[in-house]
Structures are given as structure tokens and as C-alpha cells.
Design a protein around this nucleic acid. Structure first.
Length: 566
RNA sequence: UGGGGCGUCGGCAAGUGGUCAAGCCACCGGUUUUUGGUGCCGGUAUCGUAGGUUCGAAUCCUACCGCCCCAGCCA
């Protein structure tokens, strides 16, 4: 079974792992980890990393840890931990018992720092932030040694302990690695290992007033957990020598290997926690879970499925070149998933009244409708039909252009699952000339939407019975930004915010079965798109719908192209 | 100007010296269709540039060019 897919190559990380397994590194054991800092909500970019790390573990029969990189209490909160766990689970991954926190390692980390001091590999520095910067040198010129660099081991030990015991104010001292102030890699110019920061930590409370830095904590956490492949994003490439330094000098036997890949960029949106936070704080969106947000919680509320996201992650691949993926690919994955899963229903978003003049007044009949033509097992349902119905306003045109095969005077169309109708009359408001009603006759022989004479009826419209439909709000969304690469033009992404990314439609007419829609449940509103009941605005018996994504619309595309030519 | 990376179709991305340079999305045709949806069929690149090595190079060498990252006591 495994042998027949030699041709299916796999990404460059899998090649590295294959090679490691071949060379019997770590006895073939594979352990990865997803290490978020709990300082915000997860977004689609994180989903790529989650799918990658958990996916590697699955593929190689290994394990994937969830580890919170919580070494900076200034930005971290319990709420973020809760949401991160929720989002990973929703995506369909399970870290089982492997839930870890960098803060759980604070004691061990401290001990290793002491060991480094004893070995003369770390020192306590009294230089201030500005001085540190000056001493560091620049990209093109080497740095110079701090006057404290040769402080005695005893003094360093004493000072570090006092740092820990809270005897100094914040920022007074810094524990630094003693590496090389003239290294061409700035990360190696005696990087900070510990800073003094009096701040309550969400898990360790006030136990500590010194906190370890990322470059010290992360590699060692990986080593403690015996991670074999530590996958991170490209900007950490420069940190790899320091990562290895930390692991090697710590004396921990485990030797995790850091591998870097390109983070995900998507056009028409942003993928930076800082910028997303700005959108929330400045009120451009209703929250982290606003359906327009690229956060996992946002797109979940919007109606995206975990399967579509995982499919997306596998299709975009994993490589090292900075790239921007077309949002249309995500939408494609979504539609493909929803197409086979979503129940078809009829909803008229912009209603136009139609009277079927030869249909008996007061009569109601139930018509049978497929729930999903892609999947017969989803069964059928009954929908009510009567003399007065609604169709979509743009499914009627008094003076239609060529190739318009919806309703127009004298033309016959099919009402989905119902009858053929022919337009006989157009009623207008005498003052405004606005079309307020259309009259049709129906062919009783066409019940169900076809006739025995085999006559071709090209257009098919969805509809709802006026007496049986209920009204609801439907919320339409489009890209939050007007440009593919927000910020590119002016340097400020806020300049590219779309003014009309949310459109709330009131009084839409929905078929009765939708009254029972459960928050989060997805439907295909026939010919209009995929929609789901909103989890925040819906009330029992009064659902509010989000448009998850529209249908592909070849006709609209043709119209747009034609308009452009004129 | 130092260091680390990356450059293959409009967007992703395979390809690691040898049949027509995979596949997906997008786009354009056609076809099917009780969703102008879905499905199906077909179309679209000589590989950043310039040299070189070789019978043969996207794949090796050289030199250029372009883009990204690094000077937090953030991660």
C-alpha cells in the first residue's frame, strides 16, 4: 500500500524527514509541535501551520504537541488559550495529552541559565536598552563587547539570583548569552536570555519577575519535549544558529531540528495579528469572529467548513518562497465541499411579486423537491405552491438583452420543482414606473417542472410561495479590502478598507423549512450561493443568514464583460 | 555596503542532467444540466538575465538583476 506512491513526492519538509528516517535519526520517531503564543486569535495562516504539523505527525505515525509559547505576560491572556484550543479542535486535530506550556518549564530554564553562567557562557549585563543597541553595531559593522562581559562567574551568579529574587527594578539588568559581538548574524551578538519584567503571568502569577526570551525558551522547550522537527516560518531562519546554540549548550540530549517554510499570504486580506487587532479595536469589524475576518473563528461563523480549510492547506503546498495565494482557491475548496453537503433550499433575496392568474385562489399544493441532486441519500422535502409567489427581481426583465433566458413578457420559464409559467402582464407603479408585479399563466401539465411533449424551457427560477414564506435578514459579505495587497498603495492598510463589505438585506423571503435552521447549519440557497444561520444574530424561530460564498456566476461575468466593452 | 533566504504559466506548485516542463486555482472555448450551479472535454509557460560546461540543462558552473527577512530587554 505504501509502495505504490513512490511517485507522490511530498514537500521539501517531508523529503528532509524521509532522509532522517532513512538515516535512522531519532530511531525513526517523529514529533512535531504547534507553538502559538496566546496573544490573539488564530487565523488562516495558522491553519496552514496546524495542518502541516499535525499532518506530518499523522503521515509519519508520530505525535504533534500543542505548546503555548507564553513567555511574555504583557500580551498573553487565558481567553486566547481557550479560543486557540477551540479552533484547533474545530479544524479536526487532536493533540491528545500533549498540551504543554513554556511557562511550565520556567524552573528548568532557570537552572540551565545558571549552568550557562557557571560555564562562562552567559553574563549579567547592566547596559541600558539604548546602549545595548549601540554596542550591537549595525548590519554592516561589528558590535563591541559590553564592559560587563567579563564579569566573574560568582558575581554573575549572585546578580542573576538577585534578578530572580526581585531585588532590581525592571530593565536594570539583562542576562545575555556570551557568543560573538562581531558575528555577521546579529542574532548571535550576545542575545538576551532573560529580562526583568514585573508583570503577572496568566499561569504562574507573580512567581517570577524575570522571564526567559524566545530564543532561549523555544529551542529548549522543543528539546525537553523531544520534538524531532521544529517547523517554523521563514523569518526565523536567521535564528537557527542561535536555536542550535541554545540546544547544544544546554546539555539536554535531545537535538530537535528547526526547518523553516513560507508563511501564508492571501490576497484581499491581511494575516497579521497586530493589524487584525487594529480592525477589532477601531471597530472596522464587530469582533475577532466577524464573518469577514480571516480568523478561524470568523470564517467558521461565516460558514466555512474545516474540511475545506484542510483541503486548501494541502493544495497550496509547502515551500520556501514568499507567495500570495489567490483567495479564489479557498472559495473553490469551500464550494466543492459544500456542493456535496449543503441542502438545497429556495430563498428570494430581492423579491418581486408574481401572480399566476390562472391558478385557483386559495389553493395550496405541496411539491416534491430534491434536497441535493449530488446526493440522493439526502432525500426530498415538500414545498408549498400557490397563486401568489415571489421570484428574484433580476429574474425578470421587461426588455431583456440577448441570451437572457429568464422571465420577460411573452416568455416561458420553469419555476424550479413546480410549473412552467409564461409572463402575460407587467404591472407598474403609475408614478414611478417601477415594476411592482408581474402576471403569469401556468401550464397545469408541467407539474414538477417538465412536460411530456418534451418542449425545451431554458430558464429556471427559484421562488417561494408568498403566503407560506417567512421574512428574514440575510447578510452579504465581500472582501474587507479593495485591493489585492492592502497597504501596498499608501503604506497604510486602513486606506484600503472597503466601505461596502457588509450588506444587510431585510425582508428576504425564505421557504418555510428554513425556519428550523440551526445556527451554523449550511444551505445552498438555490442559484444564489451558500448560506449559514448566524450563530450570534439568530434566535429560535428567527434565523439570520450569512452568505458564506456566492455561486459561481457565469451570467454575471458575461454581463460585466459586456458592460466593459460598451 | 554585512548576513540569511527566494526567483518555473495571471496565482500557487511539481521537477534534483535525457520522452511533449506535472497538477490545482483563475481565465477562455465547447458539452451536459429542472441551479446561467455541478460534472465532463479542450486551450494557454522553455523555466529572472547573460555567459559557460555537456551529445543533451529549469536542473551543474560563473557573473549580474530582482524580491523577502535581520540592528525588541516581542514571538
Amino acid at each position: 500500500m505504501e509502495e505504490n506512491n513512490i511517485a507522490s513526492a511530498g514537500n521539501f519538509i517531508e523529503k528532509i524527514i524521509d532522509e532522517d528516517i532513512k538515516n535512522n535519526i531519532n530511531n525513526g520517531r517523529i514529533v512535531t509541535r504547534f507553538p502559538p503564543e496566546p496573544n490573539g486569535y488564530l487565523h488562516i495562516g495558522h491553519a496552514k501551520s496546524i495542518c502541516l504539523n499535525f499532518g506530518l505527525a499523522e503521515k509519519y505515525n508520530g505525535t504533534c504537541h500543542l505548546r503555548f509559547d507564553d513567555t511574555n505576560p504583557a500580551k498573553e491572556e487565558m481567553e486566547y488559550i481557550r479560543s486557540i484550543k477551540e479552533d484547533i479542535k474545530w479544524l479536526g486535530f487532536d493533540w491528545k495529552k500533549h498540551e504543554y506550556y513554556a511557562s511550565d518549564y520556567f524552573d528548568k530554564l532557570y537552572e540551565i541559565a545558571v549552568k550557562l553562567i557557571k560555564e562562562g557562557k552567559a553574563y549579567v549585563d547592566s547596559l541600558g536598552p539604548e546602549e545595548i543597541r549601540e554596542y550591537r553595531g549595525t548590519l554592516t559593522s561589528p558590535g563591541k563587547n559590553s564592559p560587563d562581559r567579563d564579569r566573574s562567574v560568582e558575581e554573575n551568579l549572585d546578580l542573576f539570583e538577585k534578578m530572580k529574587n526581585g531585588e532590581f527594578e525592571d530593565g536594570k539588568y539583562l542576562l545575555r548569552a556570551k557568543i560573538d559581538m562581531s558575528s555577521p548574524n546579529l542574532n548571535m551578538r550576545d542575545p538576551a536570555l532573560y529580562r526583568i519584567k514585573r508583570m503577572s503571568h496568566h499561569r504562574t502569577g507573580d512567581n517570577w519577575c524575570i522571564y526567559p526570551m524566545y530564543d532561549f525558551t523555544h529551542p529548549l522547550s522543543d528539546a525537553f519535549e523531544e520534538i524531532t522537527h521544529s517547523v517554523c516560518t521563514l523569518e526565523f531562519e536567521d535564528h537557527r544558529p542561535l536555536y542550535n546554540w541554545s540546544v547544544d549548550e544546554s546539555g539536554v540530549p535531545s537535538k530537535p531540528r528547526q526547518i523553516e517554510f513560507a508563511r501564508l499570504n492571501l490576497n484581499y486580506t491581511i494575516m497579521s495579528k497586530r493589524k487584525l487587532l487594529t480592525l477589532v479595536e477601531k471597530g472596522y469589524v464587530s469582533g475577532w469572529d466577524d464573518p469577514r475576518m480571516p480568523t478561524i473563528s470568523g470564517i467558521r461563523r461565516r460558514g466555512y467548513t474545516p474540511e475545506s480549510l484542510r483541503d486548501f492547506a494541502s493544495r497550496i503546498g509547502v515551500a520556501k518562497s514568499n507567495s500570495t495565494v489567490d483567495f479564489a482557491l479557498l472559495e473553490h475548496c469551500l464550494r466543492e465541499d459544500l456542493n456535496v453537503k449543503a441542502k438545497r433550499v429556495m430563498a428570494v433575496l430581492d423579491p418581486l411579486k408574481v401572480i399566476i392568474t390562472n391558478y385557483p385562489e386559495g389553493k395550496t399544493e405541496m411539491l416534491e423537491a430534491d434536497n441535493n441532486p449530488e446526493d440522493e441519500s439526502m432525500g426530498k422535502r415538500e414545498i408549498p405552491f400557490s397563486r401568489k409567489i415571489y421570484i428574484e427581481k433580476d429574474d425578470f426583465m421587461e426588455n431583456p438583452p440577448k441570451k437572457y433566458f429568464r422571465l420577460s413578457p411573452g416568455k416561458e420559464i420553469r419555476l424550479k420543482h413546480a410549473y412552467y409559467v409564461t409572463c402575460t402582464d407587467v404591472i407598474k407603479d403609475p408614478d414611478t414606473e417601477e415594476i411592482i408585479e408581474v402576471h403569469c399563466t401556468y401550464d397545469p401539465e408541467s407539474r414538477g417542472g417538465w412536460t411530456e411533449d418534451g418542449r425545451k424551457v431554458r430558464g429556471t427560477s427559484h421562488w417561494v410561495s408568498a403566503a407560506h414564506a417567512f421574512e428574514a435578514d440575510v447578510r452579504l459579505y465581500s472582501h474587507l479590502f479593495t485591493s489585492e495587497n492592502p497597504e501596498e498603495a499608501t503604506g497604510n492598510f486602513l486606506d484600503d478598507i472597503a466601505q461596502d463589505s457588509l450588506e444587510v438585506l431585510k425582508g428576504c423571503k425564505l421557504e418555510p423549512s428554513l425556519l428550523k435552521a440551526v445556527p451554523g447549519e449550511s444551505f445552498q440557497f438555490l442559484r444564489k450561493g451558500y448560506f449559514c444561520a448566524d450563530s450570534v444574530y439568530s434566535n429560535p424561530g428567527a434565523p439570520v443568514f450569512n452568505r458564506t460564498v456566492s455561486m459561481r456566476d457565469t451570467w454575471a461575468k458575461l454581463q460585466k464583460a459586456a458592460a466593459k466593452k460598451m
